[in-house]
Nucleic acid binder design. Sequence first.
RNA 1: CGGCCCGUAGCUCAGUCGGUAGAGUCCUCGCCUGAUAAGCGGGAGGUCGGAGGUUCGAUCCCUCCUGGGCCGACCA
Length: 1146
Amino acid sequence: MSQARGETCPIGVRFQVAPATWRIGLDRKAGGGSCTPGPGVSMPSSTFAPPPAQLDLPGLEKAILDLWRVRDVEGRSLRTTTRPDGSPRPAFVFYDGPPFATGLPHYGHLLAGTIKDIIPRFWCMRGYQVERRFGWDCHGLPIESLVESELGLHGKADIEGYGVPRFNAACRAGVLRFTAEWERVVQRMGRWVDFRNDYKTMDFSFMESVWWVFGQLWDRGLIYEGYRVSPVSPALGTPLSNFEVAQGPQERDPVTRKEGHKRRQDPSLTVRFQLEDEDAALWAWTTTPWTLPSNLALAVHPEVVYVKIRVVETGEIAYLEPGRLADYQSRGRIGQAEELARVPGSALVGRPYTPLLPYFEAYKSRPDGTRWAFRVVAATYVTTDSGTGIVHQAPAFGEDDFQVGQAEGLPLICPVNLAGIFDERVPDFAGQFVKDADKGIIERLKRERKLVDQDTIVHPYPHCYRTEQPLLYMALSTWFMQVEPLRERLVDNNHKIHWVPEHVGAGRFGNWLENARDWNLSRNRYWGTPLPIWRCDRDPTDMCCVHSVAELERLAGLAAGTLKDLHRESIDAISWPSKAGGTMRRIVEVFDCWFESGSMPYAQNHYPFEKKEYVEDNLPADFIAEGLDQTRGWFYTLHVLSTALFDRPAFKNVIVNGLILAADGKKMSKRLKNYPDPGLVIESYGADALRAYLINSAVVRGEPMKFGKNAQDLTGECVKETVRVAVLPLWNAFNFLVTYARADGWAPGPEDLGPQPLANPLDRWITSRVGSFIAELTREYETYELSNLVPAFLRICDDFNNWYIRRGRRRYWREKAGGADGDKQQAYATLFRALVAISRAMAPVLPFLSEFLHQRLVVDTGLAGPEEDSVHFCRFPTAEEFLRDEQLELDVEVARSVVALGLSLRERERIGARRPLGAVTVVSHSPAVLERLRRGEADILGELNVKQVLVSSDDTALVDLGAKPNLKLLGKRLGPKLKAVSAALQGLGQDELRTFAAGGSLLVEGETLGPDDVLLVRAPKPGLVVASEGALTIALDTEISEALKLEGLAREIVSAIQPVRKLKFPNDVSQRIHLKVWSEGALAATLRRPELVEMIRAETLAVSFELLPFPSEWSPHGTIAVPANLELAVIEGEPIAIAIEPLEPA
RNA sequence: CGGCCCGUAGCUCAGUCGGUAGAGUCCUCGCCUGAUAAGCGGGAGGUCGGAGGUUCGAUCCCUCCUGGGCCGACCA
């Protein structure tokens, strides 16, 4: 590593661990550890350091963080562009979506961060360079709102009074307040990402690239000025985004129980519009009286039938929808009515009516004399479930009204400003807030007898997320990007993206693209990238879109390099003379901050002003990952801009993660405190465990995840479980290797990292399994399917610990039978190699533990290759390095199922596995299975503790056969006849079934059934110790001979002695002992058998053995009490006392 | 109101290209242990959200309903 880079780290730097705390042994004197080589020792010792007395995962992780920091491991990973052999690393391109820097990271960020860490780490290990630049979204309403409230400002008037320069300065100063905390949490999670070389959307260079992007769209004619009906918060004096509207106060509807907008009481007016061509009225309903002065049309559904009535009481003649009439009558709002006629809506279309209020009468006719406004129009959105079926139209104040107005060519009249105040065009109410004007408007209508009915209504209505005041909808001038013409290209390009999960791309995202609407990308705000449009104050059609800083300086006559910033305070004052003799001034709007994050692939590198070639080479991204909520957010804006600019997708692969909910299934809420503090979880169980926990869920496939074991889990118990199942097994395997290798003086050599010829099937088996595991993991990483990583890892850990190590345990403590022990060497080498490979393959997921293992197993032992001072610089293992033997893997599977069956039989019969039995009989009809059984005989003997494995292909004596139809096959073939055949199969006799089992066929209900058509089930015959699973049957011989009985007792004695050994010598598994036992009766008889004593000595590492009778003074009252230095055990009711002394004083 | 996802054991979730449902955890009983804040096994626990339809057969496919989540639209 370091030598080539000329750094000062000596090769022999050790990573060592003190019992309670963990630290790096950079400073040897401070380290003071037990097996650090002394000063001046440059070569590492070859044996492993002792395992720590206790495992402290968070402590271990902090030590690793120190190690990474000291060796600049992270920095080298982020920036190294060559491989150890000097060849260039190809780029794997990753884009990091910028979070708002105005809040602290939560679990959603930790999850996304873990995904964004795992994939790049994998590709790094595959020899790629992965640039990972952290990004910050600095602009937008969140920070503006924050600053506004901190400065005590309320609304746009306040901000403008305070001054945009000062306001923006406050935003700039405040926006990065949480970055240090973000950095701390991200690093603690083990995520490697470049904070030093980050990007910010408020950077001068970033903003200039945004201008360039916009300029490209402008040049292609994709930008236009239009109107859009937006929700406006009059209190804030600003339009709100849909996002902000959705953040508004919510309330559950008392009837439907559905969550929705906060409810509000509004006036409910039914208003009379007088037709000009008939002495009749059209009744229309509204809840917003303030929009009535701006009424320009009435809408009917062309296909709905309307009724013309005479109200008996008043004689008034009116039109409305009959169902609605009945509703008014049933509520007692209108009395008896006489039906005069029925007409379809289409018959009403075009008819003129008298303006309700006089303010806009001028729009009655166009200049050519044709009727313009105040007429009936057709609109299919009109419904008949509320109101009158005739809808009042004020095109400036409703989305639907606006659409109808556009379609009908109606004028757009908006006599209300953003603060909700009427202007002079409505002189009676000018200067009044619209909601306050409601009252006056109602009074006037009442006075003029234009009110049919007055009531109130309580309905859900959007409210401002900050002031809780009701929002107003009004048409505002905004800048749009044309997206609709791009739809086809958007959809096409989407097909080139690999989505995980697939359905998001095809479903949610695809549907969204197909219905994409033009993008309103301007905002009437302050702290954002300004739209680079200058416009003539005399001729509004003369506009100039500025593409770069240099162009602006040129236009404004400024010296190159004058401009240092592009925010409003720096450029709003810039102007120049226009062609029409006026002045070119900047329009006031800033960009939607989604436009900025969508420009990130270009803007983070100041494209095209810098690094032009580099950026073009690195488009599109290989990989991005964000939450499902970004479907319409970042994913969309990236895709739209990339399609518009380059007609290709912005990213090739994307992982979409689901939302993390609290354990109770609700949203995580600081207020409710319904989730554990992430920092606490990390400090209790470690980041590795949290990463594994987060990844081990369908949340990496876009589905929601409940964080926690149950609703009471506020401490992160769920993560503790992950420690136990996913972290400890690997740790334990490591601990085993180190414990015995140290006891044995075994140390790995360079050859142990590579393939070697292996004699022992157990070694060949685990090697093959490791290969399968690596193949499996590689596939998952390569396809961005992260949810199977941990399950696959758990399976290999089970195989490793509960079969390979368990079965092979004795190989490691076998004493040298003089000379080299080849099998033992291979056992160690295989164990070592498997551990190294497994930990490397999991390094992207468990970066800390695998680093620790790498340091201990490879670096400490001097086996690390060039640049391999961190596991994360190692090559990802390939399956080809591990000799695969599928047959062997199947052999072991068979053996393990026999063992499982046997153990369950012992359980049933209450015969502990310590007691040896004479034989197990295993029956299978399959010659292949029998062959596998023969190969797995040793395992079965050992695990089931039997003396003999008998195999047979005849289970006649053991089980009764039954027959079931193979539904899958027979269903298709027989159809309705299946039921009869099934019934007949039940009634078959043993003889017939035996013949069939031997390879015959069955004739049932006229159907000939072959071997595949019928499934045989085996039921143990009563009274036998037999178990059956599938085609496999086993029987235990439970007859216990005298020899078996004595051997069983001997093993009981051994297992009574071992805990004493462990108690006395907890840290030395190879301690030799002197053994003394006191015993009488049957146990003593056992202990007089030389071969059993020899067995006991070998098992307990006893160099001497002495059997004594109980001294009489131990049992003065009939019960035995032994001195304190002895242990007393009871085996089959007989007491035995045990004394252990070390061979040499410990 | 629309789009997408989800509803399976007390809890967290697999799964089934349609053939009679499985893991982990909890509870309980037992076994095993010269690595293990261990390991293994037995038991208990489910009309696979509801109702129709297609089919010999539906937890799986279709329709409707219902509950939850996300995104979006609307509320005259």
